[in-house]
Write a protein that binds this DNA or RNA. Sequence first.
DNA 1: ATCGTCTGAGACATAATTGTCTCAGACGAT
DNA 2: ATCGTCTGAGACAATTATGTCTCAGACGAT
Lengths: 191, 191
Amino acid sequence: MSVGREQILTAAIRHLNEDPTASMAELAEAVGISRATLHRHFSSRDELMVALGHRALAEWEQAQEAAGVAEGAASTDPEEIRRVLDALLERLIEVADAYGFGLTDHAMAVHPDLLRRSDELEEREVALFAAAQRAGLLRADLPPRWISNAVFGLLVAVRESLRRGEVARRDVHHLLTTTFFQGAAGDGGRA
Amino acid sequence: MSVGREQILTAAIRHLNEDPTASMAELAEAVGISRATLHRHFSSRDELMVALGHRALAEWEQAQEAAGVAEGAASTDPEEIRRVLDALLERLIEVADAYGFGLTDHAMAVHPDLLRRSDELEEREVALFAAAQRAGLLRADLPPRWISNAVFGLLVAVRESLRRGEVARRDVHHLLTTTFFQGAAGDGGRA
DNA sequence: ATCGTCTGAGACATAATTGTCTCAGACGAT
DNA sequence: ATCGTCTGAGACAATTATGTCTCAGACGAT
């Protein structure tokens, strides 16, 4: 049965999540095809990495669109923005878990195309956070870019927690949102 | 002038922070010594990486000790625990910034020695968070290990923010602590 | 049955990295 | 001045990953 580009990317990213230094030979084996065939689809390792990056960015973008980030950024309705934020975090968890290795991989930070596209996506989220601040949903004293980075960092935490099996998948969304919105301080911290 | 192991490690980590894939030759050049001399100090790349890992862990450990993590974990006094938490975050910022590449490097996750030591350090922090929960300082409904991972993730955010120059260094501690303790929700989120 | 297409296996050259080794020179201590 | 130590430069073999290529066989369509 012939495997397409998409299946190769899926299997490759799954393997790279466990061993980020895997060679083309290892990747081919993980996909279940020969090294030659892998090279027929992606003429160089670099090309494969860029394709992987674009796929991860596509998932990210899709998560934004499904959550309605653009609409949320343009809205002034706290209810709607809150819904968008929740939906975005929910979907970003999936993306972080599936494409997590890309969170830290340097291929993403090296290719101008990927970098530019990733900056653009990040910009949309920053705009959403800024809108959330205007609506009183998020604290106005935090720089939107810091908020964006904090969300990113918490997603790293999510991924790590899942990888180690320290938290159940069904609890992750609640942990992420409650930590992000309310923080970790207890009653004693305010009393 | 002869350079010692410590100076080599310092220069190497600084360079690896910018290019995590640097070869031994590049590292030697960055340090300002010849490749031969580098190999005289660290017979293999692996040995260098392990030394780097131990150094990063030593800094981490020192941060814990300076903050009084052990005492804090054994204490029931909210005031003291709060001071320890603050001091710990303050010092972890420095460590994350200086040894940040180790935050994501897999050498750390590959060598049993490093892994074990890193687990041990993490365990101490988990104990501190648990103590903070008992003292009412941190929410009791969050798993201590999730809190630990969340702090780690927020440190990644700190490092990234500093690297991009998106926030000033003097603001970072406040951003980190306020985000961690209070979260990002604004007034509108509770009203 | 035959054609066209795709595949796996493997040979091959190339390049990059690594680790070892040698040798000559710099340098400080005595 | 001389010794011992350390260094840089560079040669060297070994390893590994990469990219290309060829060839034979599988497979489906006609």
